[in-house]
Design a protein around this nucleic acid. Structure first.
Length: 106
DNA sequence: TCACTATATCAGC
DNA sequence: GCTGATATAGTGA
């Protein structure tokens, strides 16, 4: 079930250009709320898999967050490769130059 | 209303 | 630096 809130999240994520990343907080802030977790859930059930690259959405500290294939555990390799292809380097499980690559919404 | 969740932030060690 | 607890907001049953 896609809701209005989720649609807004997708819209914002789609705005993130290649080689750039954003955070759950940025998205939530752009929506004028603090539903960081709701954002993650919205992305989780996203029907726009290729259009809404959740791998471009990371945690506030630059770490990949809970995604990376599944929410249980697993390794975060696919995302690392995907981001690396776009110019985003992952170092120690976190985005390198995160602050520079961070795409501020609004 | 209750429980769950891909977060964020603070306190304690 | 890491872990535990708390705050916040949205979704589904």
């Amino acid at each position: 079930m896609i809701t209005l809130f989720a649609s807004r999240v997708y819209n914002l994520v789609k705005k993130v250009p290649k080689g750039r990343v954003t955070t759950y907080k940025q998205i939530a802030a752009a929506l004028n709320c603090k539903a960081y977790r709701a954002v993650g859930q919205a992305l989780k059930v996203n029907p726009y898999a290729p259009e809404v690259p959740c791998h471009r959405v990371v945690k506030q500290d630059g770490s990949l967050g809970g995604f990376g294939g599944q929410t249980k555990g697993r390794k975060i390799i696919a995302k690392k490769n995907l981001l690396a292809k776009e110019g985003v380097v992952i170092s120690r499980g976190k985005v390198k130059d995160f602050q520079k690559l961070l795409f501020k919404l609004g």
